[in-house]
Computed example of a mutant assay.
Amino acid sequence: MIQAVLLDLDATLLDYGTPAWRATVRAVCETLVRSLAPDLDADALHDAYTRRYLDHMRAGGDGAQHPPGRIPDADSIWRECWRQALDEYGHAELAGRATDEYKRQRRRRYVLFDDVASTLSALRSASYRLGLVTNGPGDAQRDKITATGLDRFLDLTVISGEVAVSKPDRRIFEITLERMGLEPADVCHVGDSLVTDVGGALNAGLGASIWLNRSRAVRDPLLRPPSHEITSLHELPALMLHAPR
Rank of each mutant, 00 (worst) to 15 (best):
I159T: 14
I159Q: 09
V5D: 06
V28S: 02
V165W: 00
D41Q: 06
L182F: 14
G131V: 05
D43M: 13
D139Y: 02
P19N: 07
V158S: 07
W21S: 12
A85T: 03
E88W: 01
A4L: 04
G138Y: 03
P237V: 11
A164H: 03
V116M: 03
D186P: 05
V218I: 09
P19Y: 08
D115L: 05
V165K: 04
S232F: 03
P168T: 11
A122K: 04
D87E: 15
S127M: 11
T134N: 01
S76Y: 03
R52H: 12
V25R: 10
R109T: 05
V218Q: 13
I77W: 07
A4K: 01
G200P: 10
C188P: 12
H66Y: 15
N135I: 01
V195E: 15
D41M: 01
A23F: 06
E183F: 15
V116Y: 02
G17P: 02
E30H: 10
V5Y: 06
L202V: 15
T146C: 01
G131Q: 04
A42Y: 05
A42I: 05
Y16A: 04
L212I: 12
R245K: 11
I71Q: 08
L154R: 06
E174N: 11
S118I: 10
A59L: 11
E183N: 14
L206F: 08
T50Y: 12
W82F: 06
D115Q: 07
A185K: 13
L241M: 06
G181W: 08
